[in-house]
Each structure stands twice: as structure tokens, then as C-alpha cells.
Design a protein around this nucleic acid. Structure first.
Lengths: 235, 235
DNA sequence: AGCCTTGGTAACAGCCCGGTCACGAGCGCG
DNA sequence: CGCGCTCGTGACCGGGCTGTTACCAAGGCT
């Protein structure tokens, strides 16, 4: 696998709510990014000037400047892609106008899987010379991000949005046991307060769809969680 | 999108409104061009001299010199194609007189699809070794840019302008999921503030016209958007 | 073996989302 | 001046997705 040893992309997270800022900083750092954080627009501009990031994660609701002004000012000095965070209802239309240049946006409350996926996607598009190609593969299972398609042994498998997000998370962490708590945290929205039984439900759905005609790929590790891996003999 | 391995065409965007200038710069850069920008006629002339572009996107309403003077001065040193931006009503006839030499124009408010398509068209005509040939094809669906014609399995399909722009955008991005926000941004005029329901309407129209006697080609990806692709077995 | 914990699955209800229809406004053309 | 086409909006309807619950199966421990 020709994994070039790029330096970790540098992100700047801008959000005034300490909880969200922390949540994002910690998880994105854990996902392999180098993360700086700012609570206000002014701090963000200063930080970006001192230490230019590869991408900015920017809440549109900020106490001092609003996100669009910050975006404009950021762009004055240097072209930098932006992932906007926005409330679901408000400003939706204003944001859409800004998603043109390879920028993107995510509505609050988001799931971390969503945010990480979007960041990767934007970085791939903007820095990458090849403007497309995000495919993951585990055994005979393939996932194509652009077409949002999943195939096993070449056959197309239809998945609901949640099923897809769950499978992507499992595939990106194949060969590693994931606890239900981890899964709940990453795949579901951060304010989700439901039962963890829902993870079991969706694991069940996935198993149906992708193991209906093929060997098992999602294994239960009792007391711990689940692991996706290609099947090997002694199962 | 298989980008031919020519060097990216160099554009010069000239507009005094920062919003429009930004919008165009960012989106055109994203569409694969190399973009310089200028806010006034004088800046434009200077930039063009220092770094001659392959094409100039030129607003006719500028604070210092008007677009026609700028065009003339640009042409004094070197023959360069120009895409004029103009208000809908004013100067229409004056502009048309200038579009003879391979130039073209777009009225404000424009849609980005329109601008990109026109730029490509002008570049093809002026630099093109192939004097004309803009045909896109997905499965048995063909779009001929020159004739403004769409055919499925050889049969002509009549489309309204909006339907055509939408289909072109889908075809240029076939095999990739496009969100309604993306579609709205690219296909509709930049100042359009309506509901995204209109995208659904036009998708519906297109489906009627081009799937009336043939398998489905525009697929809905729930929660995400639409994707155009040639039909495959497991649907 | 029996008990208790943990996971799997099916069934269900609410709800959100998308598809389509129908109406109205604007515009061009006759 | 009016006819018709096209664009855009609003409303209604249907279906699928989501998340919960309940019941059953399996595993592990004493």
C-alpha cells in the first residue's frame, strides 16, 4: 500500500463552546491530525497567521465576528479550505453558497465520523492532484466514498445512511475491536442519548445485508464489542 | 473527473465586487483553473502584462475604466479571449457586438455551471486543435454541447435550459453523489435564495424525460443527494 | 446443570424525507 | 392582447429509516 509519509495535516478548530471545542480537538488529534484551537474569530485569525493550517473547522456562530467574515479574512492572505459547522435550520442557505470551492459544511449536532470523513474528503479534493478516489477495502468488501457504494465480491449492497456510516467506521478500523460505547460516540450524533441497543440492531442489519451470501465478517467479542476482519479458516 | 494532463488554463478574473470576485476565484480554481484576480481595470492590465492569462473573465462595470476599454487595451499587446460579465438589461447589444471574435458573455446573476461551460467552450474554440467536440456520454445517454442536444439510445430528448444545465452537471460528475446544496450552488444563479425543493422538481422532470423508456439513471441517495450512473445489475 | 448476563433478532410506531402533483407568476411570442 | 410554455412554490402522500422494546438464544460462571 503506497502510503506516502505525509506530515499529519494541520487543523484549526474554531468554536466558542468549550465542550464542542474540546470534543473536536481531542477526537481529531486522535484521528491523526495536528490540531490547534481557538474560541473566537480574532483568536482564529491570529492563530492562522502565526501557524497556517491546512484546513479550518469553523463554527458559523461566534461571539465576535461571524464565521463568514472570518472565512473571508482567512482567505485574504491565503487560500485555505474550510469546513463550516452550522445549526440545522438557520443559515442553511447562506452556508450553501460557500460550499463551492471545495469547502463543505456539517450541521450540529454532528457525528464525529461525519466530521472526520468530510475533513478527509475536502483535503483529498484540495491538496490531492487526483480529485477523486476514496476507496476502502477489507477482504472482498469494498466501499467507494464518491459513489457512496458498497460492494461485496462485486455485488452492490444497498445501505441506509446509518448503516453506511457504521460500516465505514468498522472498515476504517478493521482488525481492531470497537466497543459499543466507541461506536455510539463516533457514528451517532454527539447529543444522542438513546440506548446502546441500537448498535446491536444496526450490527444485525449489516450482518444480514453483507453476510447473507458469504462468510462472516463482523465478529462479536463478548464483553468488549465488535471487530470487522476478513474471515480466516479457524472460525 | 478525468482531467486531461494539459497544464491548467490560466484565468484572470476582473470584478470590483469582492463577493463575486471571491466566488469566481474559488470556484474556478476548484474547477481546475489557475486563477488570478483583479478589482479594477488598471490592476487587470498590470496583472495581464506581468502574467498573461489564457482567458479573461471581465465585468463590464468597473469603477475606473469600463470593460470595453480594458478589453481593447488587453488586446493591444496580445490576442486573448474574453468572457464578459454584464447586467441582464444594460449594454446587451454593445456586448453582443464584441462576442464575434470568439469572445462570449454571461449575464449577472449567472450560474457557475454556465460560467464554467462558457469558459471551456471559448478555450476550446480559440486554443483548441480540435475545433469542436464537446460530447459527454454516460451509458446510452449522450450530450452534445455544440448542438445543445441530448440523446438517449440515439433518440433526441427535448430539454428546457434549466433541465439541460442540471443534466450537464450530473453528467460531468457521473458516478459521484451530488448534494442538493451543491446542485443548487452550481446550476442555479448565485443569488438564488429559494428552497431546495426546486432541485427535486427538476430531478423529477429529468427522470420523466429520460427514463420514460429505459432503465433508471438518476438514483436518489437518501439523506445525501443524487447520483447519475449507468444502471447495473442489482437494482 | 442451573442461573444470570449478554447479545441477536424481529416487530412496531413515529417521523422525517423525498416524489409528485397542481397551481401561479413571469415571459416571450404570435 | 392573449395564449402557452417554463420556472418555481406549496401541499399532500407514501415509504423507508430510525430507535425502542420484548423475547429468545447463547455463553459463562459457580
Amino acid at each position: 500500500m503506497p502510503m506516502p509519509d505525509d506530515p499529519a495535516p494541520r487543523l484549526l478548530v474554531v468554536d466558542d463552546e468549550p465542550n464542542i471545542r474540546e470534543l473536536l480537538s481531542v477526537s481529531l488529534r486522535f484521528s491523526g491530525f495536528e490540531v490547534a484551537a481557538a474560541a473566537t474569530g480574532r483568536d482564529a485569525l491570529e492563530s492562522a497567521e502565526q501557524d497556517p493550517p491546512d484546513l479550518v473547522v469553523l463554527d458559523v456562530m461566534l461571539p465576535d465576528l461571524d464565521g463568514f467574515q472570518v472565512a473571508r479574512r482567512l482567505r485574504e492572505s491565503r487560500q485555505v479550505p474550510i469546513l463550516f459547522l452550522t445549526a440545522r435550520d438557520a443559515l442553511q442557505d447562506k452556508v450553501t453558497g460557500l460550499t463551492l470551492g471545495g469547502d463543505d459544511y456539517v450541521t450540529k449536532p454532528f457525528s464525529l465520523e461525519e466530521v472526520v470523513a468530510r475533513i478527509r474528503s475536502v483535503l483529498r479534493r484540495t491538496r490531492g492532484d487526483t480529485p477523486s478516489a476514496a476507496r476502502y477495502r477489507v477482504g472482498d468488501l469494498e466501499l467507494n466514498e464518491d459513489a457512496h457504494e458498497v460492494r461485496r465480491a462485486g455485488r452492490l449492497i444497498e445501505l441506509s445512511p446509518t448503516e453506511y456510516k457504521l460500516l465505514r467506521y468498522l472498515m476504517l478500523n478493521s482488525g481492531r475491536v470497537l466497543s459499543k460505547a466507541q461506536i455510539l460516540d463516533r457514528v451517532w450524533n454527539y447529543d444522542f442519548a438513546g440506548q446502546h441497543g441500537i448498535v446491536e440492531s444496526y450490527i444485525s442489519f449489516l450482518r444480514h445485508k453483507l453476510e447473507s451470501q458469504g462468510p462472516r465478517m463482523i465478529y462479536t467479542v463478548r464483553g468488549l464489542g465488535y471487530i470487522l476482519r476478513e474471515p480466516h479458516e479457524a472460525d
